[in-house]
């Protein structure tokens, strides 16, 4: 509870920018009034360079509400081509919510409302006529917990191509499965047991299987929501190498709690704080010379 209070207080100070008499004694402020105050806040302006030339995805003034809760506040950010953008920030800052907007996975959550524009190659994915099925084929997603289907390894990878009709015959499907597993760096480990259950693999292998499943559909963008949080360092290392490989072909957005991981795999980093996008910039710049005080506090381990 101590840290939460501190975070909120920090934010409020930053936000208002001036020290009011009450703010000078934050310890006496009853905590329950804080959300009410926040509701009147304006979203924090983003520091740094949220936009790139020729982006793959462009988000403009995105707001997300869970019922009354304002989870993402006026975020504008570009996802560049063939690069990895890392989203960092303390728990509950909205980075996972934001990434789930990019392929409309939030649609499945009841009471979730998204406003603003998210453009994929110039087309607003929240437009009325857009169908989520082809969208999710274009923007694939890897989840925090490895979640292979309770089917064979082969069927796990073949499922996406099958439902989208990407293969005309069995031979083509076999090829898609093989190349996807190869790209996910799993082929050599599983080629002799494709008919075994996907759930029989180790955690790291399962996560690579999920990545193979995502690539098999041939997406343009891959979203990864803390893909390594359930894995040991060796499996994490493999996935990170894989992400670096995949960058050549895909645009990747990754949410991570590990700042080292963000520094290792990403070219750009976005720092979220309590629903605001605080700072965006090249990864080296964010980790060496952050411009915003909150970013600095977070990466130096002052909180989070």
């Amino acid at each position: 509870m101590e840290t939460a209070t501190e975070q909120r207080t920090l934010f409020t100070k930053e936000e208002i920018g001036v020290t009011t008499p009450e703010d000078s004694k934050p310890q006496h402020r009853p905590e329950k009034t804080l959300p009410a105050d926040r509701a009147q806040d304006k979203p924090a302006p983003t520091v740094g360079k949220p936009f790139v030339d020729n982006p793959r995805m462009a988000c403009r003034h995105v707001n997300v509400f869970y019922g009354d809760k304002h989870a993402i506040r006026d975020v504008s950010l570009d996802i560049g081509r063939n690069q990895v953008i890392a989203m960092i920030g303390p728990s509950g800052c909205g980075k996972s919510t934001f990434i789930r907007c990019l392929n409309r996975m939030n649609d499945t959550i009841e009471g979730c409302r998204v406003t603003g524009e998210i453009l994929l190659d110039g087309q607003n994915i929240y437009a009325r006529q857009v169908d989520v099925v082809p969208l999710r084929a274009q923007v694939g997603m890897v989840f925090q917990k490895p979640n292979p289907f309770p089917k064979s390894i082969y069927d796990n990878v073949a499922y996406g191509p099958k439902i989208h009709g990407l293969a005309r015959n069995r031979a083509e499907l076999d090829e898609i499965v093989e190349t996807s597993l190869q790209r996910a760096g799993l082929w050599d480990e599983v080629k002799d047991r494709l008919s075994h259950a996907g759930t029989s693999l180790s955690g790291g292998q399962q996560q690579r299987l999920c990545i193979a499943r995502t690539i098999a559909v041939g997406p343009e963008v891959i979203l990864m929501d803390e893909p390594c949080s359930a894995l040991d360092p060796i499996a994490t290392g493999k996935i990170e190498e894989l992400i670096d490989e995949l960058r050549r072909q895909y645009s990747i957005a990754i949410v991570t709690h590990s700042m080292q991981q963000a520094a290792r795999v990403s070219q750009r980093t976005a720092y979220f704080h309590l629903g605001d996008l605080i700072e965006v910039g090249r990864t080296e710049q964010i980790f060496t010379t952050p411009r915003h005080k909150l970013t600095q506090d977070y990466i130096t381990g002052r909180f989070g």
Binding site: N103, M105, T108, V133, P134, L135, R136, A137, G140, M141, V142, F143, K145, N147, P148, F149, P150, Y159, G160, I163, H164, C210, R213, T214, A216, V217
Partner: peptide
């Protein structure tokens, strides 16, 4: 049925009916 299985199916672009029928 664990929600992760639903997410997995939707994540590769299954329609709601495919998610329900297949998984």
């Amino acid at each position: 049925v664990p929600p992760s299985i639903r997410d997995a199916a939707l994540g590769v672009g299954a329609s709601k009916m495919q998610m329900i029928l297949h998984h």
